[in-house]
Design a protein around this nucleic acid. Structure first.
Length: 449
RNA sequence: GCCGAUUUAGCUUAGCUGGUGGAGCGUGGGACUGUUAAUCCCAAGGUCGUGGGUUCGAGCCCCACAAUCGGCGCCA
């Protein structure tokens, strides 16, 4: 049963002239009354297989003719180099075995018409129609989605590699929590044996509890936010790569943020050049993101630039996406934005001792209109200061008692960041919507399939 | 929470000033010896999102509702 021959290897010329057994799914078929062309697909690629009636016999020929798109088959034959076939290789079929036949009464519902989805302006929105979102479980096997899932896998691998190479320990926090990290209105409530629990919005607070134990820690885990955001950058369940580091300044934390993002870009170039090209992503662009240092800009500078462009923004305003977009439209690299006003950020951000109007934080803004991909900074680390900031905000102390305790017993300067993995993959792949890069996207209007 | 749009066959859609809803893909049947999302011929497949209204007559006009999509706020 084990599969030993992969279509990608056949197309790479590893089996020229050999007789091989190809297992896969039918992507397309066409032909005449004497020969059948079957484009066979597996997880590694596509190949044209040709079944000639006088070679395979009447019965197999009929079987091939009746095999509909997405039937699973095993085709045995000889690998020929043939320019007439896409990819340069072709299988001349000797034997046909239909494994899972598709019923003509209910053929594979996704056809070429269904895949050509455009938005109001006529731009392609792959997978964006209601039909394809309802048939997500079948859409996954189309070539674009397969490519996106491979890019995603490489990105996840790159994050693990980066942090492990930097001696970070992988650490898991609970997903059921009692308190909020961000604003309370974006929490998902979960009934919890007569009480109310929430789905976590971030690993951060629980990571800070482990900071004195592990000193350098990271995770990749889902975070949940009940935001009714209808944008191409938001999911209610997204994958969050977070790190926390003892004895670290805002600058040191940023250098790891830059490091991990550049490592993801580098890894995609090394592992997924073919896939990036197949979706027409400019490889030079990814190389630029991998090879160049990311500029830094203080909040005040950003506000000045925006005001210079005639944007209505006052000091103290948080920079929303519309402003980010204007700010980043001239950027050809991700930029760090630092030193936001204290009034724009929650209690756990550490105040800048050089000027108490600011907090020591950073956002990393991706170019090409993709927006914020990292948010992080130094944490308020003394017990006295965290209590003061909680009170200033009017945030109750009680749910955060464990968090306050971490400061009471040997608080040290520390910080960390959260990176939106789906957003990074979306940006680096050039996706038109974040749901393109996650298999079953969860948005405010959809939890199915 | 706010703003905009869409809903016609399994899918993608056309449908003019209100007068018996067309097509392509897919499916079924047929033709074809090298096709490239093959081509050619034929067939089946529609209570036009739901409910109400106007009208002699509604896919089209009006109202309500629903579902979905796009954008904003918020954020990763």
């Amino acid at each position: 049963m084990t599969k030993t021959v992969w279509i990608g290897d056949v197309q790479d010329g590893l089996h020229d002239g050999q007789t091989v057994e190809l297992k896969g799914w039918i992507k397309r078929t066409r032909g005449s009354n004497k020969m059948r062309f079957v484009v066979l697909r597996d997880s590694t690629g596509d190949i044209q297989c040709v079944g000639k009636k006088d070679v395979i016999g009447e019965e197999s020929f009929e079987a091939l003719k009746e095999a509909l798109i997405e039937s699973s088959v095993i085709l045995t034959g000889t690998v020929n180099v043939d320019e007439r076939s896409e990819g340069g290789h072709e299988l001349v079929v000797h034997a046909v075995e239909i494994v899972g036949a598709v019923d003509p009464e209910r053929p594979f519902p996704i056809n070429k018409e269904a895949l050509n989805v455009v938005d109001e302006d006529g731009n392609p929105m792959p997978g964006g129609s209601e039909f394809l979102l309802e048939h997500r479980h079948l859409y996954l096997r189309t070539s674009r989605m397969t490519t996106m899932l491979k890019l995603r896998s490489s990105a996840f691998g790159a994050i693990h590699n980066y942090f492990r190479n930097e001696d970070f320990i992988e650490y898991q926090a609970p997903n059921f929590v009692a308190g909020a990290v961000e604003g309370g209105s974006t929490l998902f409530e979960v009934p919890y044996f007569g009480r109310t629990a929430y789905l976590t919005q971030s690993w951060q607070l629980y990571a800070e509890a482990a900071m004195p134990a592990l000193e350098r820690l990271y995770t990749i885990a889902p975070s949940f936010r009940a935001e009714k955001s209808r944008t191409r950058r938001h999911l209610t369940e997204f994958w969050h790569a977070e790190m926390e580091m003892a004895w670290a300044s805002n600058d040191e934390i940023m250098s790891h943020g830059e490091g991990v993002v550049r490592h993801i870009a580098r890894t995609l170039l090394e592992e997924r050049e073919t896939e990036l090209s197949s979706i027409n992503r400019d490889l030079d662009l990814i190389a630029r993101y991998a090879d160049n240092p990311y500029p830094h800009m203080r909040y005040d500078e950003a506000v000045e630039i925006l005001q210079g462009k005639g944007v209505e923004v006052e000091w103290g305003d948080d920079l929303d996406y519309s402003k980010e977009k204007i700010l980043t439209q001239d950027f050809d690299l991700p930029h760090f934005l630092t030193h936001y006003p204290k009034i724009a950020k929650p209690f756990y951000h550490r105040v800048d001792t050089e000027d108490e109007k600011y907090v020591l934080c950073h956002d990393l803004l991706a170019p090409e209109g993709y927006g914020e991909i990292i948010g992080g900074g130094e944490r308020t680390w003394s017990e006295e200061e965290i209590l003061r900031r909680l009170d200033e905000e009017g945030t109750p102390r009680e749910p955060y008692q464990f968090y306050i305790d971490t400061r009471a017993y040997g608080g040290v300067p520390h910080g960390g960041f959260g990176l939106g993995v789906d957003r990074v993959v979306s940006w680096l792949s050039g996706a038109s919507h974040i749901r393109e890069v996650i298999p079953f996207p969860r948005t405010s209007n959809r939890v199915t399939p």
